[in-house]
Design a protein around this nucleic acid. Structure first.
Lengths: 215, 215
DNA sequence: AACGTGATGGCAGCAAGCTGCCACGTGCGG
DNA sequence: CCGCACGTGGCAGCTTGCTGCCATCACGTT
């Protein structure tokens, strides 16, 4: 089933949103999903309140969705409402929604005015898309972790320390290798762990990997 | 369009495989795709030879596909034929194929005998699935890297240890939390680091992240 | 029952990591 | 010149991580 434009989607498929019982997942590039504010609200109003029901809501975005502060604030608020939000560092469809693992709605790359939506209930299609979504979801990072975890630009010093750690040197050899005293090297490591909000060196390694500070 | 069974798929959609011009991507849980050897060969014969054409072939599997040695050998051979193979640590659809970003074929979870395939050309659906595939692909690790660096299948115990480490617990609390003695917990950590060929816990964290052992 | 094997856990001792404290040098503004 | 802030490094003491050694226990085998 194909519909054009937000209004028609709400009219024809609105009941699907309302009918969500267990799970509502969506993947999108950014937050521009509902170009028409009233359409957005219309759907939002129909969605059951977060925690109350046993409805799990998962939203997956690209970093594009964090472009402006308003968007970040909105996402943070959504999170406090019990919605899980994750950020994927790889491109995503313009819009993919799967409801209760039974229905899915895909949006075409938007033309200037109206957007084209495809609504499908074929189990084969829905399951396939759902599994792919799950894979992308699992690989993505929690919004809070993402917002917190970026040590946006750490100086060359820290990078050197990171490399030393990654090379598996002991602190002593690493310090010698970097021309630092043991004390200072460890200070640097502590600072780094602080920046990464890691409680242990293992965690620091994990975070460093996640944030792509290895290459 | 829906077809049942391998034979029918080959008959009705075989030309799609032959028609692949630029790109052939697939995601699957394991290698049991083509239950019928002749169907498999039939399709294989129709696929253009690897490097010759400008055809890029990408295959994404779960670790299940590496269960037995025969499967691993087959995948290694496929790689030498110029096919890109990656392993995703998260569940995947039973079968998803996208050809030239224009056609896609999804396979339903297989019944006992015949399997149900869905063939779709709707740009909206194909693009959506393709983007999700790309996200999962980007997050997966190269087969060679996976085979080299891996603790191929670590038991639940090790995974628990990994989670404890990732959570940033100290050894003592982690051990208590897992119902192990401090000594044994540390033994486990040592074994894990050995398996990951890591010289330090930091390195272990890094590797664990690289290998996608976090989720 | 006797035996080997393997996983476990306590202990001890060492190595490594962590941090507070203080002292020194450099640079900057008063 | 003095004082101040800041980064550095030595020292000391503590915590944590690491491992060899040995006793124990659970098991399957002979």
């Amino acid at each position: 089933m194909t519909v054009r434009g937000d209004a028609e989607l709400v009219a024809r498929a609105g009941h699907l949103f309302t009918g969500a019982r267990h799970e509502f997942v969506c993947a999108a590039r950014d937050l521009d999903t509902w170009s028409l504010p009233d359409a957005r609200q219309s759907v939002a109003r129909r969605l059951p309140r977060h925690g109350a029901s046993g409805l799990a809501v998962k939203k997956l975005f690209t970093p594009v969705a964090l472009a402006d502060e308003a968007a970040r604030a909105h996402l943070r608020e959504v999170v406090t409402n019990g919605v899980e939000v994750r950020i994927s560092s790889t491109p995503l469809p313009h819009e993919t929604i799967v409801i209760d693992r039974r229905v899915m709605i895909l949006a075409e790359r938007d033309g200037p005015g109206s957007r084209e939506y495809t609504v499908t209930t074929s189990p084969t299609l829905v399951n396939g898309v759902y599994s792919l979504f799950a894979a992308a979801w699992d690989a993505a990072t929690e919004l809070t972790a993402y917002l917190r975890g970026d040590a946006p630009h750490l100086d060359d010093d820290s990078r050197a320390v990171l490399r030393a750690l990654g090379a598996g040197y002991t602190d002593e050899t690493a310090a010698r290798h970097l021309g630092l005293s043991l004390r200072t090297y460890r200070r640097r490591v502590a600072e780094l762990m602080d920046a990464l909000e890691a409680d242990s060196r293992f965690q620091a390694g994990l975070r460093a990997g996640e944030l792509g500070l290895t290459g």
